[in-house]
Simulated scan of single mutants.
Amino acid sequence: MFCFNLFPQADTNYKITYQLTYKPDSTDLAQLKTENFQLFTNAKTSYFLSNAVVSKDSTRRNFGIGDIGSDAYKRAAASWETNFSYRIYKKPLEELVYHCEKIATDNFYYAEDVHFDWQIGQETKTIEGFSTQKATTSFAGRDYTAWFAAAIPISDGPYKFYGLPGLILEIESTDGDYRFTMIGIEKTSFYPVVNTPPKSLQKATKKELLRLQQEYYDDPIGFLNNWVGSNGASVHIGLEGKAKQDHYAKYGKQLAPKMNNFIEIY
């Protein structure tokens, strides 16, 4: 499926596609969902995000304001559904990870010093035609088993994982709640990262970002009605009665049972 001569230089740009299989609801662990992600990576930086976020970015580039509400726009917007709106930027050589989220009209990020204590074992298995080796680690409250391919000289992987002597082709939490598996890899001349993190983002602490997310999640209408964005503009949504109820039904606390089993426990 893949050619070894894809990897003659470690500083080449690659686009790697992963499929995530996960259990979104801690009260219903029999429920499984899948979603695809893209990792853009080279020797110095990497960028990880959901295909749904990629689709949303593309739609916004290809449609103007006048297209909003059109059938074509609605069809494109149907691919935006995701439980993972984050964007992850990494500088592996500096052991830095930047977690980015959009809240209301502004984009925020927090920086983390992330070092993985990998334990490399002797066990091997073949994934997508590549010989891989087993490694284990712990991160944010979960233990993980990873399989990396030393033949692919990219010390990177999905989400915030990196640091092995080869690309991570598969990584799964030992409780089985989260598993990323590589399903595609290619060289690319397109690399969507100029600055890591982008200069347009606002810096916050992890605690501040989580607090803003929670406030928006608990009362999206109230949050937006009182929000003042980075450009000084305020947002007001005058929803009352059934319209307000319908908005809460779609975006508010009623969604809590559907996505409460987060990849990071702490």
Rank of each mutant, 00 (worst) to 15 (best):
P220W: 03
A76Q: 05
T45F: 10
E186M: 10
N107R: 08
R179G: 02
R179K: 15
F4R: 15
K253E: 09
K23D: 06
F2A: 09
S200G: 08
A249G: 14
A72K: 14
N83A: 13
P197G: 03
T196L: 06
V228C: 10
R87C: 05
K23N: 01
D219M: 06
T45N: 11
E101C: 00
N83W: 09
G252K: 02
L224P: 05
G184Y: 01
T17R: 06
N261K: 02
Y178W: 10
K187N: 08
G232R: 09
F190N: 13
A78F: 07
Q133S: 07
I68G: 10
E35I: 04
G252I: 01
K160H: 07
K102F: 00
P192H: 02
E128L: 07
P8H: 09
A30S: 12
Q214P: 03
T105G: 10
T196Q: 06
L20C: 07
M1R: 00
F7L: 12
G229T: 06
C100P: 02
F148R: 00
A149I: 02
F190A: 13
P198A: 01
Y178V: 05
D57T: 13
K23R: 14
A243H: 13
R142Q: 07
E81V: 14
L32Q: 04
N42A: 01
P24T: 01
T41K: 03
E112N: 08
I168M: 04
A72P: 03
N231H: 15
G229H: 09
E112H: 04
